[in-house]
């Protein structure tokens, strides 16, 4: 089936200051208990600490959210059709159809679907489909302090995101999984040392 759009996001690590406003904004907008966006500190399990030896250090943040994969394993895994890939590329989880079987949690190679222990249902980022359908950007994009999040149609040659993809050194998470994520990352720029 040909899709008309492929909505996605580019996270610019050079501009990400690890503030977690995206996580907080997402939780407020979606009224979720858990955080659907998790900001990891790269290369360490201890949040907000740099890697290396003082003073030769690096500190990079990796905000992780549902990848809205081109080939989403979660969609195939769901026995209730609660997970759907929309024509615009958003992978949406419909909690009304979810029975809480957790198959999607196992299927997701990114470990990014969360289970709400209160209502026993799976939940995840829907790329703010409710806002996107009104022509708005996802709330995290609007609230990003560093303006590190770029949202748009990856199929549209004129979109802001396509233009960034054509010039920057981008990567996707776990490319070997064959999921082709719609969330791309730009690596931090090399340092111009003295």
């Amino acid at each position: 089936m040909s899709k008309s759009k492929r909505l996605g996001m580019i996270v610019d690590q050079e501009r990400c200051i690890g503030c977690e406003a995206c996580s907080v904004a997402c939780r407020i907008e979606n009224n979720s208990k858990d955080f659907w966006i998790k900001v990891e500190t790269q290369g360490t399990s201890v949040k907000d600490t740099p890697v290396g030896k003082f003073p030769d250090l690096t500190l990079n943040f990796l905000p992780r959210l549902c990848n809205h994969c081109e080939n989403p394993p979660c969609v195939d895994s769901c026995p209730e059709d609660a997970l759907q890939k929309r024509n615009d590329g958003i992978v949406i989880l419909d909690q009304d159809l979810c029975t809480g079987c957790k198959a999607c949690l196992d299927a997701c190679p990114y470990n990014i679907i969360v289970f709400d222990e209160n209502n026993h249902l799976a939940e995840k980022c829907n790329l703010c489909a409710h806002r996107v359908d009104k022509g708005l950007e996802p709330f995290c994009v609007l609230c990003c302090e560093g303006q590190a999040l770029h949202f748009g149609d990856l199929y549209d040659p004129e979109s802001n995101v396509t233009k960034i993809l054509s010039k920057d050194n981008v990567f996707q998470l776990k490319p070997d999984e064959g999921t082709n994520p719609s969330i791309y990352y730009i690596r931090p720029k090399p340092k111009r040392r003295l």
Binding site: G18, P50, P55, L57, L59, N60, K191, R193, L194
Partner: peptide, 14 residues
Amino acid sequence: RFTVTASKADEYIG
């Protein structure tokens, strides 16, 4: 301190 700001620097003077 190697702050978040420092992490964005081309050169950090600690």
